[in-house]
């Protein structure tokens, strides 16, 4: 039996400053939060409020100026290069606004890639990639390259790629930012369904208010600080008032 921690992510006084000559930009400034396992969390805030910075810190893509990030109760600052690569490959799935599929690889090959890094055996990884792509509705598009797919379809491939290693967390940075309203809604619903089905924690940076309807909690970010934390119900009540 694998041990299950209550919190998938914890941050302690997390800060990231960018020093640009005489100016210091406080992209994140003392964020302490706990995100529960299998929670669907939206990080909302205006442009420049620090959403992407939070995404990078929690995803182990960049080092904070101050403070700590724990994933599964492990302080990621204590990981060496090997362990950090493993964390990115196995524990975290990433979804980007610009999809970021490898342009020369087919949908299938894009989804296979993370399993090559985690050493999944060949037949098994083909089986899982096909299953995952079918799950996101692209069973008929396995051999298409990203350039031959619509934006929404590319984002589905990216979601399949992010989930195929059964990560603890999926980090999504404005996943609907490049999609039209309808396609955006489909992607939101897909993420929500996968969140419920696979019990994967989803952390979603966005300024798309449609996301509120599927979120368990919403973190409102402003100038690198958490302004308030609300549940979906609290947002609804506030909106009525």
């Amino acid at each position: 039996m694998v041990m299950r921690y209550e919190y998938a992510v914890e941050t302690e006084d997390l800060a990231k400053y960018y020093i640009m000559g005489p100016v210091t930009v406080k992209a994140l400034d003392g964020v302490s939060v706990k995100i529960r396992r299998s929670e669907y969390l939206s990080l909302m805030g205006p442009s420049g409020s620090g959403k992407t910075t939070f995404f990078n810190m929690v995803g182990g893509l960049d080092r904070p100026t101050r403070g700590k990030v724990f994933i599964d109760e492990v302080d990621i600052a204590s990981l060496d290069a090997y362990e950090l690569a493993w964390l990115r490959a196995k524990k975290i799935g990433y979804v980007f606004q610009t999809f970021n599929l490898i342009p020369v690889l087919t949908a299938m090959e894009n989804v296979l890639l993370p399993m090559i890094f985690t050493g999944v055996e060949r037949d098994e990884r083909i089986r899982r990639a096909r299953e995952m792509l079918t799950r996101v509705g692209l069973g008929e598009r396995l051999d298409h390259k990203p350039g031959e797919l619509s934006g929404g379809q590319q984002q589905r491939v990216a979601i399949a790629r992010a989930l195929v290693n059964d990560p603890v967390i999926v980090l999504a940075d404005e996943p609907t930012g490049n999609l039209d309203l309808h396609t955006g809604l489909e992607i939101i619903n897909l993420l929500k369904t996968l969140n419920t089905e696979k019990k994967v924690t989803i952390i979603n940076a966005t300024h798309d208010l449609k996301m509120i309807d599927v979120s368990d909690r919403i973190f409102w970010l402003r100038d690198g600080k958490i302004e308030r934390i609300e549940t979906r119900a609290e947002v609804a009540v506030r909106e009525v008032e």
Binding site: G59, L61, A81, Y82, A85, W86, R88, A89, K90, Y94, T98, N100, L101, I102, P103, L113, P114, F117, T118, R161
Partner: peptide, 14 residues
């Protein structure tokens, strides 16, 4: 660049 960043997210080491 983007491709390099992406495969690093997927687990590639330097």
């Amino acid at each position: 660049y983007k491709e390099i960043g992406t495969i690093k997210c997927l687990g590639a080491r330097n």
